[in-house]
C-alpha cells in the first residue's frame, strides 16, 4: 500500500469538524457563496484564478496571502472537480489562518507572484516533499486537506436535494 499523502488522524478530523461547524461552512451551496463566506471570515477579499498549468508539476494550487487580499491560483489544465478541490484546500488554509511556507517561496513559478509582505503556501502532491517537511507543516497540510474534503462534501448536494427528500 502506498502511504497516504495527507496527514490524518482523529485530532485533525475533530479540529476540522469543529471549525466547519463554528464557521457555518455547511451553509454555502456553491463556490461563489463559499468564497464570500471565507472572505468574511478572513476580512479580506479572496480572488481565484486558474493561472497555472502542468509546468507547476506537483504544485496543484497556490495561496498567496497579500496584506489586503488573498489570491488562490489553480492549474487551468486540471479538471473542474480536481481544481475545485484544490481551491477548497487553499480556502481551508485561509479559514485556518495558517502561516505561509518558506520552502515554497523560493520555487521558480512562485517567485514572480510574491511582492513585499506576501506569504505563500502551495498544495504540493509530492510524497518526497512531504517526508522532508516538518511535523508542523505536515499537520498544517493535513488540516487543510481534511477541511477541504468536508467543504467538498458540503458542496456536493444532489441537484434536486430538496425535491428528492420530499418525493424521492
Amino acid at each position: 500500500m502506498t502511504e497516504s499523502m495527507w496527514k490524518g488522524g482523529h485530532d485533525i478530523a475533530d479540529r476540522c469538524a469543529r471549525i466547519f461547524e463554528d464557521n457555518g461552512l455547511g451553509g454555502p451551496r456553491n463556490m461563489e457563496e463559499l468564497v464570500t463566506r471565507v472572505s468574511n471570515i478572513s476580512g479580506k477579499p479572496v480572488m481565484i484564478e486558474p493561472l497555472g498549468d502542468e509546468r507547476w508539476e506537483t504544485i496543484t494550487a497556490l495561496w498567496v496571502s497579500y496584506p489586503a487580499s488573498d489570491l488562490v491560483l489553480v492549474r487551468a489544465t486540471d479538471t473542474h472537480l480536481y481544481r475545485t478541490h484544490c481551491i477548497l484546500h487553499e480556502l481551508a488554509h485561509i479559514i485556518y489562518r495558517h502561516p505561509g511556507c518558506s520552502d515554497l517561496a523560493s520555487a521558480e513559478v512562485v517567485q514572480s507572484l510574491i511582492s513585499d509582505g506576501a506569504t505563500v503556501r502551495g498544495r504540493v502532491v509530492n510524497p518526497q516533499a512531504v517526508r522532508v517537511a516538518s511535523e508542523r507543516s505536515e499537520t498544517i497540510e493535513g488540516e487543510a486537506e481534511n477541511l477541504a474534503r468536508l467543504l467538498g462534501r458540503s458542496l456536493l448536494r444532489p441537484r434536486y436535494a430538496a425535491g428528492e427528500k420530499s418525493f424521492g
Binding site: 472537480l81 462534501r153 448536494r157
Partner: peptide, 29 residues
C-alpha cells in the same frame, strides 16, 4: 490508501462523498 475525511458533516449522501474522495486521491497520485 484512499484518504477520506473522517465522518463529517456530509450533506450530499455518503455515495457522493466516497466517489469524491476516490477521485481526488486518484488525481493526486
Amino acid at each position: 490508501t484512499s484518504a477520506t475525511a473522517e465522518d463529517g458533516p456530509a450533506t450530499g449522501g455518503p455515495q457522493l462523498s466516497v466517489a469524491y474522495d476516490l477521485l481526488i486521491s486518484i488525481h493526486d497520485e
